[in-house]
Nucleic acid binder design. Structure first.
Length: 438
DNA sequence: CGGGATAAACATT
DNA sequence: AATGTTTATCCCG
């Protein structure tokens, strides 16, 4: 048996419980274990039940340890915390290439579900000590609440156990095959058919996991390889070195989910820029991401025909692949169909890429009302590269990276006006809506 | 059906 | 070859 996880209904899930208005940005505070209590008012407070819906089964998982890390193992009942936003990076020498390091999550015993607390430290000081939750590895995960905001730290940094050092995906794969054995339950190498439905209960969807990974990362951003590493370290997905499907899925989610955006950073004069995937400000603020499935909406309309046709299918689509790289994910076409003319965007200013990706109209369940926080500028810096300490400042203007046209539930800019800048979209509404009737 | 996972075609770098 | 983007399916609640 293998599993992978599968969970339904997660949209709206907010992984966090924060209510605060500010983002924990990199500067932070943190370290402490904040006890972030979630104050009730939070809209996104995620209550257990909600979260519970994700899992199909109650979970109980055997404790597992992983790789060389000695995780404090957490009792099954315990909840893992997703951790708070990481703050400072620590310099990771080559880190940025594979920067994700695993850290141990201190077990948070007894965390009540509802409060999912928070944990820890985030260390800014030690990225390596951050605790991530490897929580998804084999274990059921429990509510991941992220709380972006950190209350006053009260505890000094957590002592965390030592952490594993960082593993690059390759290294993980290569070096620790052994460790894997024990986990029988890791994700199974997907069968070719594609679905393994037996999945492990309890695992959040890729989008959430990715969110988690990014959330924990300095600057809330990671390179693709690092994300892979995170998965290997924290989930069962990467268990099989040979399996590549999960990576495809990760990429797919990164591309399709509006909560993630790619940003290019210059590394140095002659060198080529590096791409990072980062949480959009909205995602950070809201503490969660939305369903990745939004893209489907388009399809529907696009082919008017009923669905019947699915046969042979796969006709080469003309506009596949992609365009754009510089900017980061922009939804390129207004009309998903063919126009690819406008496919290219300009580069993304480092300041705020937000172009946006929006979700299909209406599809969002009502539940996802994300609140918008007036956030202040986000500033982050991550000295990951030795000679270059990159600093990024998000001047977050109220520009939203998301949903340009429909603001339904989740991002209701008070000032609705400023968002929009998607050149592609043009003022006002997004094309999606219009799209359909055409 | 909506939502998530996957596979895969195709584009860019 | 690694990344990214899109489509298309499958399957489950």
């Amino acid at each position: 048996m293998d599993f992978s996880f599968h969970s339904h209904h997660f949209d709206g899930v907010q992984i966090s419980g924060q209510e605060s208005n500010d983002i924990p940005s990199l500067e932070a505070p943190s370290q402490g274990n904040g006890d972030f209590t979630m104050n009730a008012p939070t809209f996104n407070h995620f209550s257990l039940p909600d979260w519970a819906r994700w899992r199909s089964q109650p979970a109980h998982m055997p404790p597992r340890q992983f790789e060389d890390c000695n995780f404090p193992h957490v009792a099954d009942t315990e909840t893992y915390d997703l951790g708070s936003f990481a703050q400072e990076p620590i310099g990771d020498p080559n880190g940025y290439l594979n920067s994700y390091r695993t850290h141990v999550t201190p077990a948070i015993a007894g965390t009540t579900l509802e409060t999912l607390a928070p944990q820890t430290g985030d260390g800014h000081a030690n990225w390596s000590l951050l605790q991530p939750s490897h929580a998804f590895k084999g274990q059921p995960y429990s509510v991941p609440q992220l709380e972006p905001y950190q209350p006053p730290p009260d505890s000094p940094s957590s002592p965390l156990s030592e952490v594993s050092s960082y593993h690059s995906p390759q290294s993980l794969a290569a070096s620790s095959p052994a460790t894997m054995n024990q986990s029988t339950d890791r994700l199974s190498p997907r069968s070719s058919t594609g679905d393994n439905r037996e999945e492990r209960p309890g695992h959040p969807p890729y989008s959430v996991l990715i969110y988690q990974a990014l959330k924990d990362a300095p600057g809330h951003k990671l390179q693709l390889q690092s994300i892979y590493s995170w998965f290997e370290a924290n989930t069962d997905k990467g268990a099989d070195p040979n399996a590549k499907g999960w990576q495809n899925s990760i990429r797919h989610n990164l591309s399709m989910n509006a909560g993630f955006e790619a940003v290019k950073e210059e590394v140095g004069p002659g060198k080529k820029a590096v791409n990072f995937w980062r949480l959009t400000p909205e995602a950070i603020h809201s503490g969660g991401i939305q369903s990745t499935t939004r893209y489907r909406k388009l399809q529907h309309q696009k082919k008017g025909m009923g669905s019947g046709h699915r046969g042979p299918t796969h006709q080469p689509s003309q506009s596949k692949g992609v365009h754009a790289t510089k900017v980061v994910k922009s939804r390129s076409t207004n009309s998903p169909r063919n126009e690819r003319a406008e496919a290219y965007h300009h580069q993304i200013p480092t300041t705020n890429p937000s172009l946006g990706h929006e979700y299909g109209p209406t599809s969002l369940p009502v539940m996802q009302r994300y609140m918008q926080h007036p956030m202040g500028p986000v500033v982050g810096c991550h000295p990951m590269i030795p000679g270059n300490n990159t600093v990024f400042i998000d001047t977050m203007e109220p520009v939203s990276a998301f949903d340009v046209g429909h603001s339904h539930d989740w991002y209701a800019p008070e000032s609705g006006s400023n968002r929009a800048q998607d050149p592609l979209e043009g003022p006002g509404r997004s094309s999606w809506d219009l799209e359909k009737e055409i």
